[in-house]
Nucleic acid binder design. Structure first.
Lengths: 125, 125
DNA sequence: CTTGCCTCTGACGTCAATGTCAGGTTTTAG
DNA sequence: CTAAAACCTGACATTGACGTCAGAGGCAAG
């Protein structure tokens, strides 16, 4: 498939796909005229890249980790493994932090709602 | 306290505090010479602002929600309540997404580690 | 008084992922 | 064949939360 179709199927912009290639996150075969061509496999790959981006990883970090994703059965450096561990731990901490923030929001909403309902009960008897 | 102390106690840069004020997230009393002064209360406030930033809220959104934080006992617009609900839901979804990503990383690490150990067992009998 | 540190305003720099535009080539549909 | 749509490269623009620097003033200690 060409770049437009991949973009639509993966739900990203064409521009982003070219950027990913520029960053070494994505490769493409080129037709004689120079157009990029992709296989179905790339759809998953792009969505996984997006997932890592959403998790706060940088292009550089993703570049370091993607080889492990491509061929999890080959030998990879312990450094890469350690890096994945670091990111996993960072994610865990971040998730806990977000959950705490969400709970804080919940608390605020609950008290605000209670106050509003109390007001309403007092003014419309 | 002055801005430097607040920055240190809240763990942010002086620059950030001035930026928060510029965005309407933080207020300060000014001495005759124009220096900003803060109370202990501002420490909590700044850390909470940081928390919201970390949760992906923008300055604009935080500006809309902070009045509810300041005085949860007063009446606030239903719009603000709805906004908080939206952000809460967005956070919930984001947390789930991150957890999924973390699990994916875990899976990759596990298989990579297993492969490595298998290799090692084969080469050092 | 002066030395050193803190603060002020204002403005420009940064970074990363993308948007956007220009000018040209390729592919597809009719 | 021709027009529309998709693609190419290359470059500049954008956004948000800051960093950083310049030039000037404030404030406690020796």
């Amino acid at each position: 498939m060409r770049i437009g179709e991949l973009a639509e199927r993966a739900g990203v912009s064409v521009r982003s796909l070219r950027y990913y290639e520029e960053q070494g996150l994505l490769t493409s075969t080129r037709s004689a005229s120079g157009q990029r061509h992709y296989t179905d496999y790339e759809v998953e790959r792009v969505t996984f890249i997006q997932r890592l981006y959403a998790a706060g990883l940088s292009s550089r970090t993703i570049t370091e980790l993607l080889p492990c994703v491509d061929s999890p059965s080959e030998e990879h450096s312990d450094a890469a493994l350690e890096r994945m561990g670091q990111e996993r731990d960072r994610l865990t901490a971040h998730i806990a932090d977000l959950a705490q923030t969400r709970d804080a929001l919940d608390g605020l909403m609950t008290s605000a709602r209670a106050y509003r309902d109390q007001l309403q009960a007092a003014t419309s008897p």
